[in-house]
Write a protein that binds this DNA or RNA. Structure first.
Lengths: 341, 341
DNA sequence: TTGAAAGCGATACCAC
DNA sequence: GTGGTATCGCTTTCAA
């Protein structure tokens, strides 16, 4: 069987209590003893049983992580960030993939609850009330979702949207479509809110309101019209399906809910012989690796993934109840260009 | 605090022993008592503490899962399969991403060891000796790697390669390149082995040796030359880098180590104005979602991902020491076509 | 500075 | 059938 603390104690000729101390409160045990204990622990290959420890300390050294769908290329980056930070902090992480089933989320979290010190909920789809109830029972941190009173990590959507529109207007686009994601999605609501805010600055023309953030980059010269198009499933197929509508809308540029949708748009354009960015500029949101691999490569607003995951773990471990908003960054690639005609 | 078995016992007016029985050996307790216990357990929202249970039973109800890099689109599918099957069997899963660091693998597994009933090692990069040592200490199942004496789940590479080459020769290709992956990679060695086996059948011409499997689909008529090209990093960038060499090799078709490499090839071809499949047919291995989204879409040999993950969990939970080989399937899309000229 | 012993939450064995 | 209790591996008083 595995080597336990007793084995170490016996081998080192001390009590189990001393072994514990040597390991977790080194300064309270005599140097010579400590050395001997540590030495034998190492040679025996002793690894403390975290479950047993957790039983008494109440801290398990484990974290939970819930994602809607690992196959969605947006999430692996976040998972990696969570993992990396957790391992640095010597924590292991339980992963649960809900397969985009909102009803399964709470149950999975509750099952994990006893075995973890807290859980990171990545873009949870469950209703706010349920989220609140969960938060009351176990420490949670939200990533890419925000509700009052719960710590969260999100990104500066407004600024990202401003960068996007600023980029497009600078290229001369005056009529830009936005292909929306699911109405029930927090991420979509945020984008729409940002879009409209920027739209107000820009539509009335001239005077750059610049209310919100200082960097009112959508400058005076800009003047453009934003047309919101009905929501689609936030997938490649959703984008493919939306493409014809966009092409019929008489716009020269389109901002997609996310990169997957943008990729679908791109695909359908290629199939229909529409030149990108010649006939239509396409801009995404997320910055998934895929976007850089297609041709033309996708211009997109990069959302922090690894850093978001790390930040979430930090909040969890430090038990800080704050909301953190990470920066977004426009990444210009080949799918956007000057408006023609 | 959380509700424990004692709370349930007290509330139901029985001993803790009876509560345990009511929950895990229902038939040994009187019906009336059982009902009452179950009832109060439910109203109190009792969830047994798995860590405490594991302490005494030796079974934790947890599984470990090690992957080299979640950002590699090949792995999420496997992880999802593992998850799904594990949850069905009421097990939670610890995920560890090693970031392609072979040296970190064994340590991570050993850290998890105490908290899991076994671990699934997904394409582990560590040396065979290390793997053996691990297997001696804790139950493991390998996925997409095979070593003697250890249960594993892999795929029928030989058959897949045969389908691929058969497809290409049927299209009239007579000179086909293979862009190899890392020499140290088990997956690459398997592919090369398969390639050469099929090559022997096909090069000598006529008589379809058909040694290995019955389905010697590369038929008599076929006659073609296989050229192996130096190994690349198994990434998009690796493919981009390999493209010029392939184009200079005077082949009409190329089989890439995996889809990512194939995508890189495609990208570079597009950039150089090489028509695919007109000037060059490109065939990948893996079938990652990405492959269907690019234009032209990628023809590829699909490797089982979800099913592989599920099978691995099955082997682990049933403690069966067998090797399972899942089927592969050629998926024909737009990136392969008739040889021209 | 060290050891003995009391638990943490659950299971399993032994009485009754 | 049911209740007491030792036990899993570890941490944490409490004494010495």
């Amino acid at each position: 069987m595995a080597v336990t603390i007793k084995d170490v104690a016996r081998a080192a000729g001390v009590s189990v209590a001393t072994v514990t101390r040597a390991l977790s409160m080194p300064d309270v045990v005599r140097a010579a003893t400590r050395e001997r204990v540590l030495e034998t622990a190492k040679t025996l290959g002793y690894q403390p049983n975290r479950a047993a420890r957790g039983l008494i300390t109440g801290r398990t050294g484990n974290l939970g992580l819930l994602v809607p769908d690992l196959a969605n290329p947006f999430f692996p980056g976040i998972v990696k960030g969570v993992q990396a930070r957790a391992h640095e902090a010597d924590h292991a992480v339980f992963l649960a993939d809900t397969d985009e089933n909102p009803a399964a989320e709470a149950g999975l979290v509750r099952k994990l609850a006893k075995q973890v010190d807290g859980v990171v909920l990545c873009s949870p789809r469950m209703p706010e009330a349920e989220l609140r109830a969960l938060a009351a029972d176990i420490p949670i941190v939200l990533v890419y979702r925000r509700i009052p009173g719960t710590p969260s990590v999100t990104a500066a959507f407004l600024d990202g949207m401003r960068q996007a529109i600023s980029h497009l207007t600078a290229l001369g686009h005056q009529r830009i479509a936005y292909v929306a994601g699911p109405r029930s999605s927090w991420a979509n609501r945020e984008r729409v809110k940002s879009l409209r805010a920027v739209g107000r600055d820009v539509a009335g023309n001239g005077s750059p309101a610049g209310r919100a953030s200082a960097e009112g980059k959508v400058s005076a010269a800009a003047k453009c019209e934003l047309v919101e198009m009905g929501s689609v499933t936030p997938t490649f197929e959703g984008g493919v399906a939306a493409a014809d509508g966009v092409l019929a809308a008489g716009v020269t540029a389109v901002i997609a809910y996310n990169d997957l949708v943008a990729l679908g748009l791109l695909h359908r354009c290629a199939a229909r012989g529409v030149r990108v960015p010649g006939d239509l500029s396409v801009l995404g949101f997320d910055d998934i690796p895929l976007g850089a691999m297609v041709h033309p490569a996708l211009t997109t607003v990069a959302l922090p993934k690894g850093p978001a995951g790390r930040a979430a773990v930090d909040l969890l471990l430090q038990e800080r109840k704050e909301k953190r908003e990470l920066p977004t960054q426009l990444i210009v690639r080949g799918s956007t260009g000057p408006a023609e005609g």
